[in-house]
């Protein structure tokens, strides 16, 4: 199975080398691509020197768009599965194999690394903890399955879901409970895997207090929109299943290769 590790990074010069070195020390049979989201520091050069392929976005597009760039690269290069790992060192790469396993076995289209099933070796700020709790309850209620960590950026995704995401189905900023709800409506299988999330190696987190209010608004509004799109997603009639971004071919995703079943048709 052809595997791609995607590391979105914005001004992570302090951490990126150690993150890549740690991953490479595991000697996995996977390629590694760093998506430099318009960094103003030496993130790109350091990642390149550490042996990673680098996609340099010409300006800052936001976390979601950076991840989507990596997914687009993965789809075009024909990877079967990709794993998202943050560039700040919080995600312990020794769990990569645990994340890939259910995806490889066909038990899930997306495997989420959950710090609440596993362990978070740092204190999560109160406001953020409250937000996670609210949206995980909401996501669990709607998807009718236990979601413990919808904010987790440590994920393994199969090719079919990668194709879904690159077709305008990935948010610019925070993929979260809203994205999981969309996936549930579209018939994708979600599975959580216990992982250990560490504190950032160095530097400031992107989750600043000022963003909390916007986060709550965005999530509530986005979940509401997802609920209104429910039938469309279930029928597979949204642009979700149109291949707009790939080489400009406007064909149904399923026509491109043998991952042909419509996501809406898969068993939940």
């Amino acid at each position: 199975m052809k595997c791609l590790l995607i590391i979105p990074a914005h001004n992570e010069a302090e951490n990126i080398t150690s993150v890549i070195t740690e991953i490479r020390s595991l000697r996995m049979s996977a390629d590694l691509v760093v998506v430099d989201d318009g960094s103003t520091d030496a993130t790109s050069d350091l990642a390149s020197r550490a042996g990673a392929r680098v996609l340099r976005l010409p300006f800052n597009l936001g976390y979601g768009a950076a991840v989507q760039s990596g997914l687009l690269y993965g789809v075009e290069a024909g990877y079967d599965v990709c794993v998202l790992i943050d560039g700040d060192g919080q995600h312990n790469p020794k769990y990569i194999a645990d994340l890939i396993a259910p995806v490889e076995a066909g038990l899930a289209d997306i495997a989420l690394g959950s710090r609440f099933l596993g362990r978070a070796d740092y204190s999560i700020p109160f406001a953020r903890r409250l937000g996670i709790r609210l949206f995980r309850e909401l996501a669990s209620l709607i998807t009718r399955q236990q979601i413990t960590d919808p904010t987790s950026g440590f994920q393994a995704i199969n090719n079919r879901l990668m194709r879904f995401f690159v077709n305008d189905n990935y948010p610019y900023d925070f993929p979260d409970a809203d994205t999981l709800i969309r996936l549930y409506f579209a018939g994708f299988k979600i599975k959580e895997v216990p992982v250990n999330i560490r504190p950032r190696l160095r530097g400031e987190s992107m989750h600043t207090a000022g963003r909390t209010l916007y986060y709550v608004y965005k999530m509530l509004f986005s979940i509401f929109i997802a609920l209104t799109q429910r039938r469309l997603l279930m029928k597979g009639e949204s642009n979700a299943f149109r291949d707009e971004t790939l080489d400009g071919n406007r064909q149904p995703v399923g026509d491109a290769d043998d991952h042909s079943a419509s996501p809406a048709k898969t068993a939940r």
Binding site: V33, L55, R56, L57, P58, A65, Q68, L72, E76, Y172
Partner: peptide, 12 residues
């Protein structure tokens, strides 16, 4: 966004 993504992939 799509232009920037395409640009980054082409450049790589």
């Amino acid at each position: 966004k799509q232009l920037a993504q395409r640009f980054a992939i082409m450049e790589q």
